Amino acid sequence: MTAPRAGGPAGAPLPVPAYGTDTLADLMPAVARSLGVPLDGTGGASADGAGLVLPAAERVCLLLVDGMGEVALRERSGHAPALRRWRADGPHRVLTAGFPTTTATSMGLLGTGLPPGGHGLVGYEVLDPDRDALLNQLQWDGPVDPRRWQPHTTVFQHLAAAGAPVTRVAPPHFDGSGLTEAALRGGRFVGTPERLEARVDAAAAAVRAAPRGLTYVYWGRLDRTGHGDGVGSWQWGEELGRVDAAVAELSRRLPRGTLLLVTADHGMVDVAAPQRLDLAHEPDLRAGVRHVGGEPRAVQLYTEPGAAPAVAREWGQRLDGVARVLTRAEAVAAGWFGPVEERVTGRIGDVLAVMTGPVAVVDSTRMRPETLRLVGQHGALTDDERLVPLFTALL
């Protein structure tokens, strides 16, 4: 990566997620209210988000399309005629993901109704203080009990306990995975083949089978396409077209009176290879750093005792003009994670480097070659990454 100019960590304030209004943490409490199951704020599921109001319905079907950011969807709307018409003719809102803008964190917001500081899934790779080792919260590659890591009751569990059945439709290997158990537990799981048609079939059948309740559907191929080929690629446009056709088909097959919702967990930006700073060639940036976690666009640094101020200065100088560098205390005080529970504090990096330009930080000494080749990236707080659509249709 071309070296950014020297300087300090100062920079314009980054947007702070407005937890309690129009974020992903507010969506499931609104779904619960739509189904006549208001949350009381006990057990973990937040009763906030009262500003997000959805139509009352006996049945709700929520489709989450991984990686379908609002900005990219608007720019590539020629590939999505059904969603384009929906945007023009029906209710459409823009939600924000939390921080960082990554799947594990967003699934925590969605499933629990809590901000990251409450649910504790505060990044892609974060420190497990008990082991002094990083935990990849997508792969769940450490001996960590997900129900202890995220102990709060999920909204799915609240709904099921209140007599509103929940069905979760996703790839079979999601059933019982660490992330599912931490963030999305509750109700019945239906695994389907990795085909959109199969996902639509299972969703329609689940909605029709229950006179009341929630059907949650996950689709991840758009995200994988963006990572591999870029959100600006023709491949991403083609996959978006398939998603759009599936939404149209689902809307035709759901029973009358069903509330259909379509949203996403984050957006994405393309980062060219020359704009990726490789820590393998940056010894000054490794000084005082014990672990490098987070993600390439929202790096979380776990430092040696007492080294955080010096690490923040070095990273701020090196990334001046392309990133905002600040300490954990500054990020928490700014509200990026919402209120932070004591058990979560140590999982957050001592120093955070959040990209503001089209750059990323990688480490070829430990990342797999296929990871180093990824084009689409997310994690930071640009509009491309943090804004997600919410389409609403009472069929």
Rank of each mutant, 00 (worst) to 15 (best):
A323T: 05
E314V: 14
S34Y: 03
L381R: 11
H79K: 03
A323R: 00
V388I: 11
V200F: 06
F189S: 12
V262R: 00
R212H: 15
H119M: 10
A203H: 03
E125T: 15
V16L: 09
T105A: 14
D175S: 11
F99Y: 14
E75C: 06
P151M: 11
R199H: 11
G237F: 04
W234N: 09
Y302C: 10
L138C: 08
V292K: 00
A329S: 14
A32I: 03
A310K: 02
G232A: 13
D130E: 15
R85I: 07
L326N: 02
V60C: 05
T167C: 08
L14A: 09
G257M: 09
D22W: 11
L381Y: 00
L387T: 12
V31L: 11
V322E: 05
V362F: 02
V359P: 00
T258M: 05
A162I: 10
F99G: 04
V311P: 01
F337C: 03
R85Q: 15
V354I: 15
A45G: 10
F337V: 03
P305G: 11
T371C: 02
V325S: 02
F156H: 13
T2G: 12
P29E: 12
L372F: 07
T167G: 05
A160I: 03
V388L: 07
D48Y: 02
L260N: 03
L301F: 05
L277C: 15
L277M: 14
A310V: 11
T21E: 15
T371L: 12
T180F: 02
A308Q: 07
S106H: 03
L138N: 11
P15F: 04
G379M: 04
R5D: 13
L110W: 04
S46V: 12
L394K: 04
E385Q: 15
S106V: 01
V166Y: 06
A323N: 02
A287S: 15
H266T: 11
W315K: 07
G294K: 06
L301W: 01
S46F: 08
S106A: 15
F391R: 01
A82M: 06
